[in-house]
């Protein structure tokens, strides 16, 4: 009987410890296990001036697939599928930080050139940067620098280029009614950078097909490569727009970042109503993004999931005080 009691106590203690360990996120452990090897952060040492390291392109008749096709073990269709899969495996390495910065800086120059130049008001720029840095600091990519500027354009626009360059137009700031709305808008742009939306798009594009890796020495030695990248990214960001799902993803994280800071999470959603009333022809924000109505719907559904979020501040007085006489 005594032995039975001891065994029961031991079982109870052990089960207690195991239950406590349920708080461990096995999903994170799995993600860490499956995580690809770390990307390079800094640019590698300059390589000899040469063209890009081209990806080993599968060629007809080569390798195991070619042998299998040659011996009749697989037909042409199957070999095609296998070659496609091989190409995906051999696709380009993610663009590194120094290269991202060079591309993003060049695109930032294009933004100023094409969208009215700099809106010169130091006080206002500092305010926008303070809101932006606060939001970026809780984002999923807080370890890179973020830079904020205002464009001298009456059209309501907002842009983000890789490397953390974020722009809002003076026209957009005139439509914004409070700091929570501004935080949501900046959060959307920060999310594009944090999730590397534009970079992922260019990595998959024809412009970089044949490259296994993009390095600063390639960008430096062959200006044509950078020209093509900036040209394609400009078309994507300023004319065609990113994939609509990426825009919805940026909305989702933009709202979440504003919520993390402690703003009323409904800021970005509420601004969609304002944006919906503006003239489409005047704004790239409208012509390249999903409709404000569609965005409002998704954001409204998301906002309902935040507990007590509607009680969080919108800081309309501070926004008005900071912008009054400066726009």
């Amino acid at each position: 009987m005594k032995k039975l009691l001891i065994a029961l106590m031991a079982l109870g203690i052990t089960l207690g410890l195991v239950t406590a360990s349920w708080s461990i996120n096995f999903g994170d452990i799995l993600n860490e296990t499956l995580k690809p090897p770390p990307q390079k952060k800094a640019a590698p040492a300059p390589k000899p001036k040469a063209k890009a390291a081209p990806a080993a392109k599968p060629k007809g008749g080569g390798g195991l697939i070619g042998i299998l096709e040659g011996t009749g073990a697989i037909d042409k269709k199957t070999s095609g599928i296998l070659r496609g899969a091989t190409a995906v495996v051999q696709s380009m390495q993610p663009i590194g930080w120094e290269e991202e910065r060079a591309i993003g800086g060049s695109l930032a120059l294009e933004v100023f050139k094409n969208f009215g130049g700099q809106y010169k008001n130091d006080k206002l720029q500092r305010y926008i940067a303070l809101v932006g840095l606060t939001v970026a600091g809780v984002s999923d990519r807080a370890d890179i620098p973020y830079h904020f500027a205002i464009l001298n354009s009456s059209a309501p626009n907002a842009f983000a280029t890789p490397g953390g360059y974020i722009f809002v137009s003076s026209g957009l700031l005139k439509l914004v009614r409070n700091e929570a709305e501004l935080a949501g808008i900046l959060g959307h742009e920060i999310a594009h950078v944090a999730k590397r939306h534009a970079l992922k798009t260019i990595e998959r594009s024809k412009t970089l097909s044949g490259f296994s890796q993009l390095t600063t020495s390639i960008l430096d030695s062959d200006p044509g490569v950078l020209n093509n990248i900036v040209k394609e990214m400009s078309t994507t960001l300023f004319t065609k727009g990113l994939d609509q799902n990426l825009e919805f993803e940026a909305d989702k994280f933009g709202m979440d970042y504003a919520y993390r800071v402690g703003y009323n999470a409904g800021g970005l959603r509420d601004f969609m109503k304002v944006l919906g009333k503006t003239q489409k022809s005047r704004s790239v924000l409208l012509s390249t993004h999903p409709t404000p109505r569609a965005r409002y719907g998704k954001l409204n559904a998301q906002a309902k999931r935040y507990r007590s979020a509607s009680l969080a501040p919108v800081l309309s007085q501070r926004y008005l005080a900071e912008t009054k006489g400066n726009l």
Binding site: A102, A142, Y146, D220
Partner: peptide
């Protein structure tokens, strides 16, 4: 401003840009 929320160093426009 960048440094305040990141560990990256402060540098100007990239020479490539």
């Amino acid at each position: 401003a960048a440094e305040s929320s990141s560990g990256s160093s402060i540098r100007g426009l990239s020479p490539i840009s």
